[in-house]
């Protein structure tokens, strides 16, 4: 366990304010919560992406902990190198390594390096901030973009209904590496998120935590409603919050099923599914995904 020191009482702003994230940015809030849970005895490796750009413009930095950014796709390899250096110099008992990046860096370009890092068993916590598109470069589709969402590279058009594939299931890919801990969290459930990060950091070896983080700019949602949308994603069953510790699954239950329309209808990225001629078929397919999750993870107590 990371030793709780006196100074850890003041860990609320290890990602300090004054950075340049958009209003309502789910990722900045989640990253702050992650560091609050992790404390000061961590080294953070960050992929290229919104979080990196809004927090580290030279000569300023919002990071109160040792922090390094190298490239878009090599974050887990850099973290592996840091871990190796800490190990050989006898520092690994007091320092934890966090590798973090967006869904694009995780599900797409960095997946090979993540797989290598997980498979080799490095003592690293990987965190994916899932805002469901390449936001930093202007809202392009990633492998983690949900079914039928509009992005600038999956636009709806005469022959398109938006993103043509369901979301890539990276937590299950991480699990397939046989690692001791995988969790899915949401910025809408900060206590659950806090617990999962602390839990992950208490376990030696590779860990994967994915956090759902609404992006007002990319999703076309009101900045003050970030937490609402994060919660609706969970309450509909579209973003099941669960953890698998040494093979044992535990999921956060939801009180009752909220129809997916409640989540979809106020987001500009899904607006093309509503309106004059409602896209009943597409919405039914999305509902199907939610229902499957509810079934698979036992989200509703029967």
């Amino acid at each position: 366990m990371v030793k709780v020191e006196e100074r850890d009482k003041f860990n609320d702003h290890l990602l300090a304010s004054g950075h340049t994230a958009c209003p309502g940015c789910g990722q900045s809030l989640a990253a702050r919560l992650v560091l609050r849970a992790a404390g000061r005895n961590v080294m953070v490796v960050n992929s290229t992406g919104c979080l990196e750009v809004f927090s580290s413009k030279y000569p300023e930095s919002a990071w109160e902990v040792p922090w390094i950014h190298s490239l878009f796709e090599n974050t887990s390899a850099v973290a592996a190198g840091i871990e190796a250096a800490l190990k050989i110099t006898g520092q690994l008992d007091r320092v934890r390594v966090i590798a973090q990046g967006g869904d694009g860096s995780t599900a797409d370009i960095g997946l090979g390096a993540i797989s290598g890092m997980l498979e080799r068993g490095h003592d690293v916590l990987y965190i994916c901030y899932d805002n469901e598109a390449y936001m930093n470069t202007g809202i392009q589709r990633s492998g983690s973009t949900p079914y039928y969402a509009r992005t600038t590279t999956s636009p709806p058009g005469k022959v398109s209904r938006g993103n043509w594939r369901p979301k890539k299931d990276v937590p299950q890919i991480a699990l397939a590496h046989g690692i001791p801990y995988v969790a899915v969290a949401s910025v809408g459930y900060p206590m659950d998120l806090d617990r999962k990060v602390r839990k992950a950091l208490s376990i030696r070896g590779p860990k994967y935590v994915q956090i759902h983080v609404p992006c007002p700019l990319g999703w076309g949602t009101a900045p003050e409603r970030t937490i609402d949308f994060a919660r609706l994603a969970v309450l509909t069953g579209l973003y099941p919050l669960y953890e698998v510790e040494n093979g044992e699954l535990r999921a956060l239950k939801i009180p009752k099923k909220v129809p997916v329309e409640e989540y979809l209808k106020e987001q500009v990225r899904f607006r093309h599914l509503f309106g004059k001629e409602d896209r009943k078929k597409e919405i039914a397919e999305i509902q199907g995904i939610a229902d499957q999750n509810i079934e698979k993870f036992g989200l509703i107590v029967k």
Partner: peptide
């Protein structure tokens, strides 16, 4: 030799591993 030898999944990662380790202040 007392060293960590990291068998990576490709050269992009090999270079990245030594980058990370060098950032911690060790010879690589």
């Amino acid at each position: 030799l007392e060293a960590e030898f990291i068998n990576v999944e490709g050269e992009h990662s090999a270079a990245s591993v030594v980058l990370g380790a060098a950032a911690v202040g060790v010879r690589v």
